[in-house]
Design a protein around this nucleic acid. Structure first.
Lengths: 186, 186
DNA sequence: ATATAATATGTGCATAGTTATATATTTAAC
DNA sequence: GTTAAATATATAACTATGCACATATTATAT
């Protein structure tokens, strides 16, 4: 499981609350590992129990207290250890491909609509990478001490770009194959 | 969730036991939706409770009985209904990308080893697609009534091919970036 | 004034998925 | 002859994830 270690990684940049970690997730890890807020809060509790993070409660009059988490030395050691362990190969799970696989039993028009929706999603992602994420990495790269990290962030962005481009291209090919159905070629 | 519907789809080709379904999975759905044996057995039970499948117990003297599942008309209706519903967009989860993202804190040599292992996996998949899966689709396409289905199976195979190729290419680029670390160009 | 969004932290329940274990038979390898 | 692998069916326990809900404050928009 990567979630506790992804949180350790984010906290290694700076201490943060669970809410702030969720926001940081949305701009980065989110594209290759997802997490909901309840999951983040629960995982932070487990990490505290294991001594990987320490909590400082910032009391504020009349407002809910902020729980600021920071990595302990044990946490940094755990992160280094996890980074050195060979990564698990991901198990792909894509409902669209299941629907395409049994596509003969579906209405070709409906299948084409699914493919178009899917294509639009990845085309949108591609735009978001260029317009939002790439500039964001540039911005953080300009900060002191972050330029080295930015090189690695860019590698994951490049993966996202290539995947999205591949998805869009495959979709076009699949759409051509699905809509061509029944036409005669000579 | 796609598992019950993937099982309905496989059973729509022919009745089968849980064990046979697992074997069929390994050669097809497996590449875009995974399932373990216990999960398949439990899901089949749920499907039976919902009336999507019917069971025939084949008693054999001195041998464990085979439970053969077949789709009911309600099951076929459910499959058609599911195929027409818009597919969920998959949430990618890839531990390697998390490790690359925080790669600055890792030993570059270890990170390179991870990337090489990952590359080897997708290069192997690519070979398997050509040598095992493509001929298999050809074989089933030759059977009466399966040629129409084979066109859709091929679309999912093509996705696998493109993904694996993209993964290998990205890996080469990432390896170059990671091992180039610290070298001076001029 | 009112509503909504954002900040901030969680609990409870349900679903989904993995690993370990148990049982029993047949077939192939050594 | 013995062992291991494949066939065949599961249950129990555990982990992970997701969705709905509860609570409270502050800032912004209408």
């Amino acid at each position: 499981m990567s979630l506790p270690h992804a949180l350790l990684g984010l906290l290694s940049y700076r201490p943060a609350t669970g809410y702030e970690l969720k926001a940081a997730f949305e701009q980065s890890i989110h594209f290759f590992w997802n997490a909901t807020l309840p999951q983040i809060y629960r995982t932070l509790n487990q990490m505290r129990e294991r001594g990987w993070v320490a909590v400082t409660v910032e009391h504020q009059e009349g407002r809910p207290s902020r729980k600021v988490y920071r990595v302990t030395e044990a946490g940094r050691e755990e992160l280094r250890h996890w980074l050195a362990a060979p990564p698990e190969i991901p198990q792909p799970r894509d409902p669209l491909l299941v629907k395409v696989f049994f596509g003969r039993q579906a209405d070709p028009a409906v299948l084409a609509a699914h493919l178009k929706m899917w294509r639009a999603h990845y085309a949108g992602l591609l735009r978001r990478y260029e317009e939002e994420i790439a500039p964001l990495i540039h911005h953080y790269a300009a900060l002191t001490g972050a330029s080295e990290d930015a090189r690695y962030w860019s590698l994951t962005l490049e993966f996202g770009r290539r995947f999205a481009r591949m998805a869009v291209d495959w979709c076009d090919a699949a759409l051509a194959a699905v809509t061509q159905e029944g036409k005669v070629h000579g």
